[in-house]
Write a protein that binds this DNA or RNA. Structure first.
Length: 467
DNA sequence: GTAGGGTTAG
């Protein structure tokens, strides 16, 4: 006897079912009540007839983390017995999920989670540092986290710190100081370290120094520049309008004996050619990749989609590029869809954009914060405010904050409508995703507030300002 | 998915 009601006789079967279940909430229900009797009544759940394996915890935690269902994830972690000896990679998934969700305090708490046996290694520390970097924590905070942990830093630690130095101060010089410190402590730089420096100089527009780093790494450290290094340099050259130089650099890259089959650098070139209106050269670029046996990767497909949407204004061609991508065995990601959503909105086709977003889960791609922002902005720009209201509710429910620009237009519309109750709930929703800025409610106060609801809102705003 | 790039916001 098997089937939906028989459920699972072992943690092995449960793990397989959890893995198969695409809906994280459904997976959680399976995890919580793997037997039919347990499913019948949550309060009287008997213990399942088997012991959960670490694998089951692994799968459910990762699924919940990916879906940002953090309270559920925490409750599963709280049930995780330390006797199962969960290992650091799982902890790292949790930490980085919080980093991606921009929840630094939660990331710090996870780092110290008691279910995971001490001591922590540099790997967990580095994951935490990277999460904090994603939350735009300033460099001194990362440094003190580092010192406080008592964990010996490795090259990866320094690479993250160097990135943070650039992100924080915008100056490459602090990154260079960290590089010197790293050498003094006898930690050998890796190809990633040099890639980070090259990128930092490129972003600062200091191309001569970027090329100097490339030279130093090969001549003094005998580390050959890889595709990352070339990609940064080529992008910087394209941005300065030196597409021919970028072309030459690409030649150097592919003539390197190392099997550089990475297509990322081609994406930059393709997009730069689109911007210059040289669609034909993109075609020959793709042919060249085919000749050389270089797989056309996701980024190249995405830069084609972007080229058609933004440079050519040709949505049909963009959707055709999406089809090509799928036919070529490359799964479109949120960048692909976000570009199309933006393109449709820009053409005023926000109803089509809305449909595309609704279709994304079925196509195997979860809408992200960019998806919703572009759609919301596009609808607000076009004045489709009742649809905007629907999208707004959906995105806020998922924990995504709308863009400032969209909020301004949306709140402006609600003010003009003079619906104080709506305004109140929208302000609350904005506060729930930390998107309520003083300027918004100051403006709201000077707006529609001349009816009895006025006092209520003023009181609400006072409360918000105290929070 | 412990670190760097390339395609979308900003």
């Amino acid at each position: 006897m098997s089937g939906a009601t028989a459920k699972f006789s072992s943690s092995y079967h449960l793990a397989a079912a959890l893995r198969r279940e695409p809906d994280p909430a459904a997976a959680l229900r399976l995890f919580l009540s793997p037997t039919p009797t347990a499913a019948a009544g949550p309060s009287s759940s008997p213990a399942p007839p088997f012991r959960y394996s670490l694998r089951c915890y692994d799968i459910i935690v990762c699924k919940l983390a990916a879906a940002r269902l953090f309270p559920a994830m925490e409750s599963v972690l709280a049930r995780l017995p330390s006797s199962l000896r969960p290992r650091e990679p799982l902890l790292c998934r949790v930490i980085s999920a919080y980093g991606r969700a921009r929840l630094p305090a939660a990331a710090r708490r996870a780092f110290a989670h008691p279910a995971f046996p001490a001591p922590r290694t540099a790997r967990a520390l580095n994951t935490l540092l990277h999460a904090l970097l994603a939350c735009r924590a300033p460099l001194p905070e990362l440094l003190s986290e580092c010192r406080g942990s008592g964990i010996h830093p490795d090259a990866c630690t320094y690479n993250i710190l160097m990135r943070a130095a650039v992100a924080d101060s915008g100056s490459v010089d602090n990154a260079c100081l960290l590089f010197d410190e790293m050498l003094q402590r006898g930690i050998a730089p890796t190809v990633v370290t040099f890639g980070t420096l090259v990128t930092a100089f490129c972003e600062a527009g200091r191309l001569e120094e970027a090329f100097k780093v490339k030279e130093v790494m090969s001549l003094q450290y005998n580390i050959r520049p890889n595709a990352h290094v070339y990609a940064s340099l080529m992008k910087a050259l394209c941005e300065k309008g030196k597409v021919d130089d970028a072309h030459r650099l690409k030649e150097e890259m592919v003539s390197n004996s190392e099997p550089l089959v990475d297509s990322g650098a081609y994406a930059t070139l393709a997009r730069a050619l689109f911007r210059l209106g040289k669609k034909g050269e993109v075609v020959s670029l793709l042919e060249e990749m085919k000749e050389k046996g270089i797989k056309v990767g996701r980024e190249v497909h995405n830069s084609m989609i972007a080229g058609f949407c933004e440079d050519e204004g040709d949505l049909d061609a963009a959707f055709a590029a999406l089809d090509d991508m799928q036919k070529g065995g490359c799964k479109p990601d949120s960048v692909s869809y976000n570009t199309l959503v933006g393109g449709l909105c820009k053409m005023g086709r926000w109803r089509d954009a809305s449909e595309l977003v609704e279709d994304m889960p079925r196509r195997g791609c979860r809408p992200d914060v960019v998806t919703y922002r572009r759609l919301f902005d596009g609808i607000c720009d076009a004045g489709g405010f009742s649809e905007a209201r629907r999208v707004f509710n959906e995105m806020v429910f998922k924990g995504f904050a709308p863009s400032k620009d969209g909020v301004r237009k949306f709140v402006g519309w609600i003010e003009r409508e003079g619906d104080a109750a709506s305004l109140e709930s929208v302000l609350c929703q904005l506060a729930s995703v930390n998107a309520l800025e003083s300027s918004e409610w100051e403006k709201a106060m000077s707006g529609v507030l001349h009816d009895p609801a006025e006092q209520k809102i003023v009181k609400l705003l006072d409360n918000l300002s105290l929070a």
